[in-house]
């Protein structure tokens, strides 16, 4: 599903964020990306969800080389992904429902299907009661769960999560991991970046360590 060969990402021509990354991630894998802050986790995920372009190297996503893809092609690829951001990236003056509805509409769900699916995922993240609450009225943890729900709403083939449990208490963190595990069991590839070694050690999934831009098993 994802293949990276000799991939480099350098900012401002001199500052290397990723160095010679060689990696294969197959369909249906659950992968933890572990590393300290500033190690390059976010840059790695940005490349995967096509926000950043590698400086050098080959990058295959869904078995297609995405180099020189047009905006439209990148948009269509993004529709197959669900991304959870560290800073949530939610529309603050819109309600939880509206945030999820947008993602469902982009991929072409009918209003009925979008409504049904939105209720389902809100239930999964235990926020059904906040359906009509504007994002700015939600706590940090609740906002994070809405961000996760948005990533799930479209039944994506690939989920990229950047510190999805960062602001959550252990109980909610575990429930979020369970949701991701369930999705993974149904064939969805999950890549989760975190610096929480304690959490990662509870699971036996594949672990990729990242440090100073280098990734190793």
């Amino acid at each position: 599903m994802i293949r990276l060969n000799h991939l480099y990402k350098t900012y401002l021509k001199t500052w290397p964020a990723l160095k010679n990354v060689n990696l294969n991630i197959g369909k249906g894998e659950f992968v933890f990306l572990i590393g300290p802050s500033g190690a390059g986790k976010t840059t790695f995920l940005k490349i995967l969800y096509l926000e950043e372009v590698p400086t050098r190297g080959d990058f295959y996503l869904f078995d297609d080389e995405v180099k020189n893809y047009s905006h439209k092609k990148r948009a269509l690829l993004r529709q197959k992904m669900g991304v959870v951001f560290q800073d949530f990236k939610l529309m603050f003056y819109k309600t939880a429902y509206e945030n999820l509805e947008l993602a469902a509409n982009v991929v072409g769900f009918s209003p009925k299907k979008a409504h049904k699916r939105t209720l389902e995922v809100l239930n999964q993240v235990r926020l059904s009661h906040k359906i009509n609450t504007p994002i700015y009225q939600l706590s940090g943890g609740e906002q994070q769960r809405i961000a996760i729900a948005r990533a799930l709403v479209t039944h994506p083939d690939l989920i990229l999560a950047d510190e999805p449990t960062g602001n959550l208490d252990p109980e909610i963190s575990n429930s979020i991991i369970k949701v991701l595990e369930k999705l993974n069991a149904n064939g969805t590839t999950v890549i989760m970046a975190t610096h929480d070694y304690k959490l990662v050690n509870q699971f036996s999934y594949r672990k990729l360590k990242i440090n100073k831009g280098r990734i190793y098993e």
Binding site: Y49, K72, A75, K89, M91
Partner: peptide, 16 residues
């Protein structure tokens, strides 16, 4: 600006 960024992230095309 953030709204546009979010629309891009969830897979919105330029036209969308």
């Amino acid at each position: 600006q953030k709204e546009i960024e979010i629309m891009e992230i969830v897979g919105g095309t330029k036209l969308y």
